[in-house]
Design a protein around this nucleic acid. Structure first.
Lengths: 240, 240
DNA sequence: ATTGTTATTTTGGTTAACCAATTCGGTTTC
DNA sequence: GAAACCGAATTGGTTAACCAAAATAACAAT
């Protein structure tokens, strides 16, 4: 797919989305100290008027801000600055919005951190049901690999099942958040192909065995080795 | 604040939010295989009609689903199932929505994972600017502590600055996501008070020194020790 | 002066109508 | 017969008006 190079050239035309602009404005209000935690901020109508945009856009912006825990909006009551006395956030709020187009390195690095820990916890806390679930997932992955198919989906499912077996809801949620981005990167550079899937399958089995045997550290290390393998493989195929 | 006990009793009255209901419906459509990745799903109007709700609610649901990378909606074109062939997600989609009312244990556990790694990276990659920023943050924290004030905010700011110095954008973003929940838990059980803040301040200094000296492992371990201290402290004061 | 009540305003939530871009079908043209 | 083309219908985005709940202010009774 030679299209990559050409597209790279135009990559910089970032359309400053209206809602992003609003978010920045609100952030400035907070960081500049004009809005302190607990304060009720102006009504949606006022904000829309001040910013010179429609209310729905203000609405979207507030929704996003609320998701990140920055704001808390109560029906028929108002929207308040909820988070930590967010002078803390300074320039950080905008950054969190860029999560979904993060650099590949950070993404993989973070994935390794989360997954190795998840594997460890999973080994310590897995139930029999977890084992069954993991084996089932691994089986359908093996099926696809034998047929020489893509199987990115089944691959990730196995990893997510491990997160589920870790019994740590936050860990699982965070993995769910970054998973789509990982998939995106993996598909853009076609990671499948030669004998690599076979190796990956074996590594999955190894990890599962350690989890079965409740060997936390070994499972964790196996996971780390596995992910590093995958990373190097994808790196090599990136230039090609 | 004795209100806690009483409120616990009524905690179960979870109002099944309309948009959550819609999200479940759409999830079922996807997981049941009626909607496959790449498929365009019905227009917002059709969906609103089928579900018997307003279009705006469908809109909110789609927006959330899109944020998680499940869907991709193109202006004037339609909304398609974008993510991984999401049979993977099965029951998981709903879980990610519960991130913000996670259990305290998972939250702290995950925080330890993220922060120890962030400290390690920070020690390896910090610039002189980072050091300045960290010292400044630590200073304002020390100021508050000396005055015997709360300083939760300044505390967290120091930690976030470490995440920033780690040069890993995803790691930073994830910490920003869970930080508000941490603060919430820390404020609900008043964590401040006696000599603990003084100890915490010393530990912060220790961590900063390791980062200055580029000692990754030591910084990481100091961070872990610090967080465990904080955890145990807050646990003890929970019952009291 | 304080408290309890009521009327009004303001709030976020919801709906319905409108807009511009896109898609798709049928027609024309080569 | 295939491709180019035009227009009607459909798409997501946007706006404005409306709703019930909540907050607020004014007032009355104690």
């Amino acid at each position: 797919m030679g299209k990559g190079k050409i597209l790279e050239t135009f990559k910089e035309i970032v359309i400053e989305s209206p809602v992003d602009r609003i978010i920045k404005q609100i952030r400035d209000l907070i960081t500049s100290g004009q809005l302190n935690p607990g304060d009720r901020l102006p009504s949606e109508r006022k904000l829309a008027d001040v910013f010179g945009v429609g209310r729905s856009q203000v609405r979207d912006a507030l929704a996003k801000l609320e998701f990140y825990g920055i704001l808390k909006t109560m029906p028929q009551s108002g929207t308040v600055v909820a988070g930590i006395g967010i002078t803390a956030l300074e320039g950080l709020i905008t950054d969190v919005l860029k999560l979904h187009d993060s650099d590949f390195a950070s993404l993989v690095e973070t994935r390794v951190v989360l997954e190795t820990q998840a594997a460890w916890f999973a080994a310590e806390r897995r139930t029999e049901e977890d084992i069954e679930s993991l084996e089932k997932a691994l089986e359908s992955y093996a099926e696809k690999v034998k047929q020489g198919q893509q199987a990115v989906e089944e691959d990730l499912l196995f990893h997510l099942k491990i997160a589920e077996a870790s019994k740590n809801t936050v860990l699982k949620s965070l993995m769910l958040i970054i998973t789509p981005d990982i998939v995106k990167d993996f598909i853009s550079l076609d990671v499948c192909g030669d004998d690599r899937p076979q190796r990956a399958l074996e590594e999955h089995h190894e990890i599962l065995n350690f989890i079965k045997e409740r060997k936390g550290q070994e499972a964790s290390e196996a996971m780390r080795a596995h992910l590093i393998e995958v990373l190097e493989y994808s790196m090599n195929n990136k230039k090609a």
